[in-house]
Simulated assay, not measured.
Amino acid sequence: MNPTLNAVRAGVSRGLIELRQTLTTPMDLWNHVLPSVIYLVVLYFTRGDTVPGTAFSLGARTLPSLIGMTIVFSGLSTMMMSLAVEREDGTLLRAKAVPSGMVGYLVGKIVLVSSMTILNIAVILVPSLFLLDGLAIGSVTSWLTLAWVLVLGLVATLPLGAVLGALIDNPRNGGLAILPIMALIAISGIFYPLDGYPDWLASLGRVFPVYWLGLGMRSALLPDGMAAVEHAGSWQHLETLGVLGAWAIAGLVAAPIVLRRMARRESGSAVIARRERALQRAA
């Protein structure tokens, strides 16, 4: 049997086991879905407000952007912190000791994080279908658009999260890595239209996948007339496909290289040294 294919199958099994453990551990499950619950509360209290200059619900306008932000956070920060923590506790070292173990490990994490991302989106989306007015969810095209943007968004962000996790030696420094992610979200048009930013800042926001994930989700869930309030006055599906696709290719090329280099540096002595440093900080 092909070793890589065998590793992929083992990774899928590992991811499903970790998913079952997460879903059956109340504290872990709550920690995962808490942000989505907070987003849902925000949408509830903004459902009666309107987008400035229109009669359209502000909550309905914000919902797709929050879904895009959920994908970004899951793909980047969740994947990043998982690798950083399991690098310190020796999980990655054990995976390295198995033939094609890093492939299986990465596939397992992708299965776990992708599944929890879909669950978080469902926590936000399903109640919002009943709470918010104006959502365009009555056509097959809307759901197909939501599906391809979701899949491409995960492919664009999960490898980048793995790269960030491989670069962080101490999981307690993960908060510093989250700050740039928060900065990207701030200039992505999710909470404030890009037209309100200086041209150079708006252009910078359009370089990264956060803006395009939000735009793609808005194109899936909002009426076509709402495209007029977007920065370019349209949904820009081809541009969304191109930018997310470019980030996906970059991540898929970079992630295996960075992970292999990180795995080569892993050793029992390195794991022990990190544990001792962690115990000293806790003492």
Rank of each mutant, 00 (worst) to 15 (best):
M1K: 11
M1W: 03
N2A: 05
P3R: 11
N6K: 14
G11V: 05
S13Q: 11
L19P: 03
Q21H: 13
L23F: 14
P26N: 13
Y39S: 07
L40Q: 14
V51E: 07
F56W: 00
F56A: 00
F56Q: 01
T62L: 15
L66Y: 15
T70V: 06
V72Q: 14
S74Q: 10
L76Y: 03
M79I: 08
M80T: 04
M81Q: 15
V85W: 12
E88A: 12
T91N: 06
T91K: 03
L93S: 05
S100I: 00
Y105D: 12
V113T: 15
S114M: 07
S115W: 12
L119A: 13
I121V: 11
L125D: 10
V126W: 02
S128K: 04
S128R: 14
L129M: 15
L129E: 13
I137E: 11
V140N: 00
V140W: 15
T141M: 00
T141E: 15
S142E: 08
W143N: 04
A147Q: 07
L150Q: 06
L152H: 10
L152W: 11
G153T: 07
P159Q: 05
L160Q: 13
L160V: 08
A162D: 03
V163H: 11
A177W: 07
P180L: 09
L184Y: 04
L184D: 05
A202H: 06
A202N: 01
S203H: 04
G205H: 00
V207L: 01
F208R: 02
Y211S: 00
Y211E: 02
Y211D: 04
L215C: 02
A220P: 09
G225D: 12
A227Q: 14
E230F: 08
A232K: 05
Q236D: 15
L238I: 13
L241T: 09
G242M: 09
W247Y: 13
A254F: 06
L259W: 12
E266A: 13
S267M: 12
S269P: 01
V271A: 13
R277W: 03
Q280A: 14
A283L: 08
A283G: 15
